[in-house]
């Protein structure tokens, strides 16, 4: 105020200081904006790199899984179906016509038996690739069927209950969900020493939820994330990549009572059009 009431030279000083202050402020704002934005970009790039690395790990795991699956099928075909068909061929060789009638009949019966075995074997391989129940009757039937088979083995008490599955998911989604469930159940059977495994399904909003409970040894989310980042845990990476394709989420938890583990799958619903 003093300066405003002062003579023109005082006002001139005020204007000079004010202008300098305003310009410093402007420069400060510009520098801050530039540096902040650069920092944000650097952070985004780091995040992107991490995401890419994760995708790469998942991709490698998927490829490895695919190769292992192919090797398993090749081994099944080579070690089981191959010898069966070769034996059948031996029974049906050129000398068969020169043999006696009774011997011919015996050879044909044996060959028929072996061919039946080969058919059964190939059907089993085919069913392991794409369960017919899943294709024909959907996820509910296929999952219930899977759990009934496990329960029937007598090793573990297994049950599945679908509470609200009136609207079926898309076929591709059902297959992916089924594969995830299969992999999770396999893991439980292989590693957990559980006495029971129970699956429940329900819906909330536009999401479908599947929860697996078991009382064996399990993992929690932190361990799942850690295994997912590491080179170990091919099955878990496979689960993660499938859940990723489904745009879903998976949570590994332990019950507060510490008596059983819970695995929850959250899948956005895309019903069959």
């Amino acid at each position: 105020m003093y300066l405003l009431e002062a003579d023109p030279s005082g006002i001139s000083k005020l204007m000079f200081i004010g202008t300098l202050g305003m310009l410093t402020l402007a420069v400060g704002i510009i520098v801050f904006v530039i540096f902040h934005q650069r920092k944000v970009i650097r952070f985004q790039m780091e995040m992107k790199k991490m995401e890419n690395d994760k995708q790469q790990i998942l991709l490698n795991a998927s490829i490895r899984f695919q190769e292992e699956e192919r090797q398993r099928i090749a081994a099944d075909l080579h070690d089981d179906a191959g010898p069966l068909l070769a034996t059948a061929r031996l029974y049906l060789n050129e000398n068969l016509v020169n043999q006696e009638k009774a011997q011919q009949l015996q050879s044909i019966i044996s060959a028929k038996q072996i061919i039946d075995d080969a058919i059964l074997l190939i059907r089993n391989i085919s069913h392991s690739l794409m369960p017919p129940t899943l294709k024909n009757f959907g996820l509910e039937s296929a999952t219930t069927d899977l759990f009934q088979k496990i329960n029937g083995s007598g090793v573990i008490n297994a049950s599945a209950r679908f509470h609200d599955y009136r609207d079926r998911l898309k076929v591709e989604q059902e297959l992916l969900v089924f594969r995830v469930v299969q992999e999770l159940v396999n893991n439980v059977l292989k590693h957990s020493n559980a006495a029971f495994i129970h699956l429940t399904q329900n819906c909330s909003g536009n999401n479908l939820y599947l929860r697996i409970h078991h009382d064996g040894k399990g993992i929690v989310q932190a361990e799942f994330d850690k295994l997912n980042q590491s080179t170990q845990g091919l099955g878990l990476k496979n689960i993660a990549s499938r859940v990723n394709v489904l745009n879903g989420k998976i949570f590994f938890e332990i019950d507060p009572s510490q008596t059983y583990f819970k695995i929850t799958l959250e899948i956005p619903k895309i019903p069959i059009v």
Partner: peptide, 17 residues
């Protein structure tokens, strides 16, 4: 699009029970 390969092997898809 983040590419995840199709893990389901193509052959023997036909369902002949």
């Amino acid at each position: 699009i983040s590419y995840v390969p199709d893990l389901d092997l193509e052959p023997t898809r036909s369902n002949t029970n």
